[in-house]
Each structure stands twice: as C-alpha cells, then as structure tokens.
Computed example of a mutant assay.
Amino acid sequence: MIKNLTENEFKKKANILLMKRAKAILNCGGSLFALFTSKGQISFAVRIVTNQKDTRIIIGRYPDISLTEARTKANQIRKEQKIKKINEDSLSDCPLFKDYFLKTWFPEKTAKYKAGSTRPSNIKTLFTKTIVPSGLADYRLNEINSAVVCRCMKELNQTGNAFIFTLEIFCCMQMYEGIKSDSRK
C-alpha cells in the first residue's frame, strides 16, 4: 500500500513530472491520484469502484485546491460511496412486499384459519383490490413505514378498507421483522 504523500513530497514529484511535459499519473496514496497533462495541468482524482468497475472522479485542479483539500474531498467521496453501496445492498436483500405477502405471509396466515373460513379470501381480495392499486405492493419491505402507508392510502382515495388495509400490512411487516431477527441469532 502506498503511503500518503505530504504536501512537500507532492510538490517535489509534481515539479519533476511537469518538467517532462508528458501525461502521467502520480499516486498520492489512499486512492487519490494526481493526473498530469502534456500541457502542464494537474488534476486530482479519486479512484472508486462502481458496478464492479474502477472509476475515477475528478476532484479539482491543482493549485486551485491543495493536496490536503483534495484528500479531504476524496475521503468524503469514498465515504458517500460506501454508504450508497450499503444502502443498495440492504435494499436488494429485502423482498418486495407483494412477493413476501404472496409467497410467505399469506400462505402461513391462511393455514391458521379453519377450513371453510372466508377470512383468507377476504385478505386476498384486500390485497388485489386495495394494496396492489395503492402502489404499496411494489415497495421493498424495508422501505415501508407509516408515512408510506398513509401516502399510498391517500392516493388510493379509499377509506372503507383503511383500517383493515393498515392492520394487514403491519401484521405482514411484523412477521417479516420476526423472521429477519430470528435469522440474525
């Protein structure tokens, strides 16, 4: 691993590369690079991985920003990228409400009712006539909160099933959270 260059070390190496008047890349440490053009311009760039490909993000031009400022910006960009990746990973690991509802929650809920009970068909009707048209079915489970449910209900403009709608959604969510927490143990 390359150690981080100090401001003085950077200036010495930059002067040598500028005298050559050729394209060059100087590794400043910590995924920060100085890009030299044949015209004598120096730009700072940070290397990050996006979609499993190396990518460079230009931070700014030297001497408009110093090495220290470039390093601070590079660290901030890398931190933002890590947070973004964590968020994307956690979203992709979480099922859509409709998939979880139809494949896991509804079959388990149906099995608890006596044979001949109309409750499962009522819940299925609620799902197809209320939850799906509201748009809630296309949310990932970890994106759903009370504000999302209220917004979906409001857009649906249907008040008759509001209580049952909310109750069934949160019963489903509770089951998912229980399974998720059991898998962590």
Results as ranks from 00 to 15, higher is better:
110 T>K: 13
153 M>G: 13
15 N>Q: 14
56 R>G: 02
102 L>A: 13
41 Q>V: 11
70 A>F: 01
179 I>D: 09
147 A>P: 03
24 A>P: 03
174 Q>V: 01
134 S>L: 07
15 N>D: 14
6 T>L: 10
185 K>F: 07
18 L>T: 12
181 S>W: 04
99 D>T: 12
62 Y>W: 04
50 T>P: 02
159 T>W: 01
102 L>N: 15
127 F>S: 08
56 R>M: 11
40 G>V: 10
125 T>V: 12
123 I>E: 12
94 C>Q: 06
4 N>A: 13
105 W>P: 00
79 K>S: 12
137 A>H: 09
145 N>K: 02
132 V>Q: 09
118 T>F: 03
80 E>V: 00
179 I>H: 06
158 Q>G: 10
97 F>Y: 07
108 E>D: 12
126 L>I: 11
3 K>S: 08
90 S>L: 11
184 R>K: 12
144 I>H: 02
140 R>C: 05
160 G>K: 11
145 N>I: 05
172 C>W: 00
95 P>E: 08
141 L>G: 06
116 G>F: 04
74 A>I: 11
180 K>I: 14
87 N>Q: 12
185 K>A: 12
78 R>A: 00
156 L>H: 04
119 R>P: 00
141 L>H: 05
64 D>M: 09
4 N>W: 00
49 V>P: 03
119 R>D: 11
99 D>C: 05
5 L>E: 07
18 L>A: 13
117 S>R: 06
44 F>R: 05
140 R>F: 02
159 T>V: 05
171 C>E: 14
173 M>F: 06
126 L>S: 07
139 Y>F: 13
169 I>D: 00
2 I>P: 10
136 L>E: 06
24 A>G: 08
93 D>L: 11
177 E>Q: 13
127 F>M: 11
63 P>E: 06
58 I>S: 09
178 G>M: 08
21 R>E: 15
3 K>E: 13
117 S>L: 08
161 N>W: 01
122 N>C: 03
104 T>S: 10
123 I>G: 01
61 R>G: 07
114 K>C: 07
111 A>K: 12
50 T>F: 06
143 E>I: 02
180 K>R: 15
69 E>D: 07
109 K>W: 02
21 R>N: 15
174 Q>W: 01
